[in-house]
């Protein structure tokens, strides 16, 4: 996953990278010039005449003019910086009328991602992954009902806070397909370090296909083990917090697991998503993400194997 501020993959990040270049290089020159002036001041050859301390040097008049010139130079440079910053900032605020609408809700310590639709049956709710079509602006509404989080996808745009009691918004117009790393950038508690939002930018057709797949109900269990696993899931502690559409599990306290197997990570970046890690996670979530709100479900080894068999099939 790319995640560098100076490797922009969207219009917004591109605009910001321009500001970086516009400020960094002149700053570098100014810094080196300052060091050079300091070095010259310290090591220049001075006339041998020994002045008593305190007598002012004779030619400070020129220095007064130089100070004035320096002040004007700084002011001009800073004005240029401010102007560049302002212009690029306004590019970040641009909005298109046919932008894709996404809603991201910050939780402790995972991301709920929803794709609203005027037709309720076509709405999508998922967790810990964000897909966007390339070349089309996405307006991401940001909200939180617990603490302040901040969504930051360095390759696509600057960050925006998710503040309880407020709705904030971020626009992203991706220009290159690929996988990008998003993360939480405002300290939000014990597992702030493990709150990754993997972002996938794909062609519009692939995006539409993904959205359709998300709308579908959960895949039925494909093996006797998976059937037993579904039983355990619905009747045990899992259903108290997690939802799998098309089953009896309908709680929204924790992440929606309907399409768990198609996600890049487990626990919002705590672990990679594969069989071995899923087993380890279910056996003891606190060992991998200490302080997470998911308790140890206390499943027997047989139950664990069955539940994992079921969850693996939820593509």
């Amino acid at each position: 996953m790319t995640h560098h501020v100076l490797a922009p993959a969207a219009d917004q990040a591109e605009a910001i990278a321009t500001v970086w270049q516009g400020l960094f290089w002149p700053n570098l020159v100014i810094y080196l010039a300052m060091l050079a002036a300091l070095a010259w001041a310290l090591w220049r050859r001075r006339p041998a005449a020994d002045e008593a301390p305190g007598l002012r040097a004779k030619h400070t008049h020129h220095w007064g003019l130089a100070l004035l010139g320096w002040t004007v130079f700084i002011a001009a440079t800073l004005t240029a910086y401010t102007a560049l910053s302002f212009v690029q900032d306004r590019r970040l605020l641009a909005r298109e009328p046919d932008a894709l609408r996404v809603r991201v809700t910050g939780e402790q310590w995972w991301w709920q991602v929803e794709y609203p639709d005027s037709d309720p049956s076509r709405q999508v709710t998922t967790a810990n992954e964000l897909h966007l079509p390339v070349g089309r602006m996405a307006r991401i509404e940001l909200q939180s009902d617990n603490v302040i989080h901040s969504l930051w996808i360095p390759a696509l745009n600057g960050k925006q806070d998710l503040i309880p009691g407020r709705r904030t918004e971020m626009a992203v117009t991706p220009r290159a397909t690929g996988h990008y790393r998003g993360e939480c950038a405002e300290f939000c508690g014990l597992q702030h370090a493990h709150m990754v939002l993997p972002v996938t930018v794909e062609s519009p057709a692939a995006f539409a296909a993904w959205l359709d797949a998300q709308r579908a109900q959960a895949a039925p269990p494909a093996s006797p083990s998976a059937t037993r696993g579904k039983q355990v899931f619905e009747s045990g502690p899992c259903a108290l917090c997690h939802a799998i559409s098309g089953t009896d599990a309908g709680s929204h306290a924790g992440p929606d697991l309907t399409h768990l197997a198609s996600r890049p990570t487990l626990g919002a970046g705590a672990l990679p998503n594969d069989r071995a890690h899923l087993l380890a996670w279910l056996a003891d979530p606190q060992a991998h993400k200490p302080g997470t709100n998911m308790p140890d479900p206390k499943l027997s080894p047989a139950q664990l194997t069955d539940v994992v068999a079921y969850l693996e099939g939820l593509r």
Binding site: G236, P237, A239, P295
Partner: peptide
């Protein structure tokens, strides 16, 4: 019982 873990 069996739905919410004991500690919780």
């Amino acid at each position: 019982a069996g739905k919410i873990p004991d500690d919780q």
